[in-house]
Design a protein around this nucleic acid. Structure first.
Lengths: 202, 202
DNA sequence: GTCTATACACCGATAGAC
DNA sequence: GTCTATCGGTGTATAGAC
């Protein structure tokens, strides 16, 4: 007796909030935080601006939700990889593939890069969230590099934290340049980063 | 007679255009292209928005003038260094110091990074100008790295163009991260880049 | 939850006086 | 060259009907 359709609407409505986050995340990566509007979201979803404001009264609320989604994305990736039995090389490769999946559709960059660019106009509560995400990402890469160096998979001089910075900054920069110059910017950079992790100081 | 004050106003007014470019370049680096307005410029200079429009009717005109100023900045630096008798190491050091001078005042990044971030909303004529500036910068660094490798100053594996990309992308990324996290992000990255230019593949 | 309608601020841009 | 005044467009955000 009517057991299946007990909550048909609630399940659907719950998704609407996620739909907004999903399309907003794409808009963040393609247009930037200040350059996408509630109108863009409403056009993409086929509902009005006012409806978006029902789910996220202020744009700051939406921004925080986006940071939460990115944090979830990070944790799903980092926590799984940290305690896995993958080699350090594989851990790094999986991270790189995940980061570069941003570039699947054209003209997308890392969402953290987009937030960084608009930091001067960013709501106050978003800055600490952004700092937190940046740091966790770099800590993860730094740990993987150090682990790989200790077990002989990687060979690089100096501080692992600094090497991780160069690695992450180059990758995200390559995404940005790829959006400007179109051509295949990422492969050469990736190959060079790979070689640098097999180098030793003279 | 009356030879001295023949054109007292023209000389001064010529500077007003340069003043606008100068303050706009700073605003570009601190706020981003889409995030600074004619109102910001007029407030900083103490004249009205309409006066700014007299010198640069459309914002696109101002944007092109900014690209021209950056190009001039590049040529003054690159052409002088190219045909100088500096070592490749010194050429690279001078370039780095010039690029990092952007970070003198707080919260400034490379102006090309700012333009890249807003590429989705950039006027059509600015994209080729931006591409041109990016390419010339990378070509210069690439040539210096290759020159240094051939005369034994640098030791790095792989393609000089790819190594130059990593070098420039890391530096500009460090400027961006420095604006977010405040602390001294640049020194460790710079030191690590230096070590990577002394490494050899195993 | 979604809608219509609206308020208010800011933006780029123009007209015309001085 | 600079000003006052204003236009049209867009942005975030809110009120209230359904």
């Amino acid at each position: 007796m009517t057991p299946d359709i007990s909550q048909p609407k609630q399940v659907r409505k719950k998704n609407r909030k996620q739909e907004i986050i999903q399309i907003s995340l794409e808009l963040l990566q393609t247009q930037g935080y200040e350059n996408f509007s509630y109108q863009d979201i409403s056009s993409a979803l086929g509902i009005t601006k006012a409806s978006i404001h029902y789910h996220f009264p202020k744009k700051e609320d939406l921004g925080l939700a986006l940071c939460g989604a990115i944090k979830q994305w990070h944790e799903d990736l980092f926590l799984n990889l940290r305690d896995s039995d993958h080699s350090a090389k594989d851990k790094l490769r999986i991270f790189v593939e995940a980061l570069l999946s941003y570039a699947e559709g054209p003209y997308k960059v890392c969402p953290l890069s987009s937030l960084q660019a608009d930091v001067a106009k960013l709501p106050d509560t978003l800055l600490p969230a952004l700092q937190d995400l940046d740091r966790h990402e770099l800590d993860f890469v730094s740990q993987v590099l150090e682990e790989g160096r200790q077990n002989g998979e990687f060979h690089f001089p100096g501080d692992a934290q600094a090497q991780a910075s160069i690695f992450v900054l180059s990758l995200k920069g390559a995404l940005q340049y790829s959006r400007i110059h179109g051509g295949e910017w990422i492969s050469p950079v990736l190959q060079q980063l790979d070689q640098l992790l097999q180098a030793s100081s003279t």
